[in-house]
Structures are given as C-alpha cells and as structure tokens.
Simulated assay, not measured.
Amino acid sequence: MRDFAAEASQVESVPIATSGDVVKARQSVRTLAQKSGLSLVNQTKLVTAASELGRNTLIYGGGGVARTGLVTVNGRSGVWVQFEDEGPGIPDQELALTDGWTSGSGMGLGLSGARRLVDEFELRTAPGAGTTVSVVKWVR
C-alpha cells in the first residue's frame, strides 16, 4: 500500500487508551468522511471499519493511536485511517483475517469485516512488534 501518511492533509491523531478514545477516533473519521464527499453508505462503512479497528487497538494492542487524514492521488480523493499499537502483534496474519476467527471473545469479524468495508487495507504486524492497520475509502 502507498504511504498515505506522507500525503494526507488535515491529519489528526487520537490517542487510544479508553473506550471513550475509540469513540473520539470514530468521530474524527466521520467528520473527515463527511468533508471528503463520501456517500452516506460509504461514510457508514468507513466509520464501522474504524470502530472495529479502534476496538482491536484498545483490547488486543493495549491501546495506541489512530491517525486520520484526507488523501488525493491521481485525481481521486478519499479518507485514510491508520491504527497503530505496540501490543503483542499477530502471530498468524492469514488466520487473523479469516472470517469467524477470534483470539478473544468477539465474533471474529473485526479485521476481516473491516477489510471488506474499505477500498484499501494493509496489515503490518509481527509477534512482539505491535500492529499497524491502514485503510483508505475512496470517494466515488
């Protein structure tokens, strides 16, 4: 995936240490989604993905940071969202992206569901090295 962090405008960082912080991150994503011109359906998809990823950052990563920004590439505009933690990492990425798999008590739709809701999805993780998930939803 392209390094959207360097190209993003109106970047906002939201520390995630509590469930209230996940709500703040979700609100930041919603605001940018509205500004970007995403349709209401695509706003909802992006906000839902961000909510799932934020929850994962808090519960499985022990907290971290969410970054959001507007991006424009080759005339296309969209919203970039990144969640980063310094938690234990994910030992088996392929398994973690399988529908129904969960490392906790959830339904197992967090990562795989988030991936289906966005246009671009990148997962970077390693055992003991934390996890970074970056997503983009493009305006159509």
Results as ranks from 00 to 15, higher is better:
residue 65 V to N: 04
residue 65 V to T: 13
residue 65 V to G: 01
residue 65 V to I: 08
residue 65 V to D: 02
residue 66 A to S: 15
residue 66 A to V: 11
residue 66 A to Q: 13
residue 66 A to D: 05
residue 67 R to S: 13
residue 67 R to C: 03
residue 67 R to N: 14
residue 67 R to Q: 15
residue 67 R to D: 12
residue 67 R to W: 01
residue 67 R to M: 09
residue 68 T to C: 11
residue 68 T to E: 10
residue 68 T to M: 13
residue 68 T to Q: 12
residue 68 T to Y: 09
residue 69 G to H: 09
residue 69 G to N: 09
residue 69 G to D: 08
residue 69 G to V: 04
residue 69 G to S: 07
residue 69 G to R: 04
residue 71 V to L: 13
residue 71 V to K: 12
residue 71 V to A: 14
residue 71 V to T: 10
residue 71 V to W: 13
residue 72 T to Y: 05
residue 72 T to S: 15
residue 72 T to E: 15
residue 73 V to K: 14
residue 73 V to Q: 11
residue 74 N to G: 09
residue 74 N to P: 01
residue 74 N to Q: 13
residue 75 G to T: 04
residue 75 G to I: 11
residue 76 R to F: 00
residue 76 R to N: 09
residue 76 R to W: 05
residue 76 R to M: 05
residue 77 S to M: 03
residue 77 S to N: 11
residue 77 S to R: 14
residue 77 S to D: 05
residue 77 S to F: 05
residue 77 S to G: 07
residue 78 G to P: 04
residue 78 G to H: 09
residue 78 G to W: 07
residue 78 G to F: 06
residue 78 G to I: 07
residue 78 G to K: 04
residue 79 V to R: 04
residue 79 V to K: 02
residue 79 V to G: 02
residue 79 V to M: 03
residue 79 V to L: 03
residue 79 V to A: 03
residue 79 V to F: 08
residue 80 W to A: 03
residue 80 W to I: 03
residue 80 W to T: 05
residue 80 W to P: 05
residue 80 W to E: 07
residue 81 V to I: 11
residue 82 Q to F: 00
residue 82 Q to H: 01
residue 83 F to V: 07
residue 83 F to E: 10
residue 83 F to Y: 14
residue 83 F to P: 03
residue 84 E to T: 12
residue 84 E to I: 07
residue 84 E to M: 07
residue 84 E to R: 12
residue 85 D to M: 03
residue 85 D to L: 06
residue 85 D to Q: 08
residue 86 E to I: 06
residue 86 E to N: 08
residue 86 E to F: 07
residue 86 E to W: 04
residue 88 P to V: 00
residue 88 P to T: 00
residue 88 P to M: 02
residue 88 P to D: 02
residue 89 G to H: 08
residue 89 G to P: 07
residue 89 G to Q: 07
residue 89 G to M: 00
residue 89 G to V: 01
residue 89 G to K: 01
residue 89 G to F: 01
residue 89 G to N: 07
residue 90 I to P: 02
residue 90 I to T: 01
residue 90 I to K: 04
residue 91 P to F: 08
residue 91 P to N: 08
residue 91 P to S: 15
residue 91 P to D: 14
residue 92 D to P: 06
residue 92 D to G: 02
residue 92 D to F: 06
residue 92 D to Q: 06
residue 92 D to V: 04
residue 92 D to I: 01
residue 92 D to N: 14
residue 93 Q to P: 12
residue 93 Q to R: 13
residue 93 Q to F: 00
residue 93 Q to M: 12
residue 94 E to M: 05
residue 94 E to H: 10
residue 94 E to D: 11
residue 95 L to Y: 10
residue 95 L to W: 11
residue 95 L to I: 13
residue 96 A to E: 12
residue 96 A to T: 07
residue 96 A to Y: 15
residue 96 A to N: 09
residue 97 L to M: 15
residue 97 L to N: 02
residue 97 L to Y: 07
residue 97 L to I: 06
residue 97 L to S: 03
residue 98 T to D: 01
residue 98 T to H: 06
residue 98 T to K: 15
residue 98 T to W: 00
residue 98 T to G: 00
residue 98 T to F: 00
residue 98 T to A: 09
residue 98 T to S: 12
residue 99 D to G: 02
residue 100 G to P: 10
residue 100 G to S: 10
residue 100 G to L: 09
residue 100 G to Y: 12
residue 101 W to D: 01
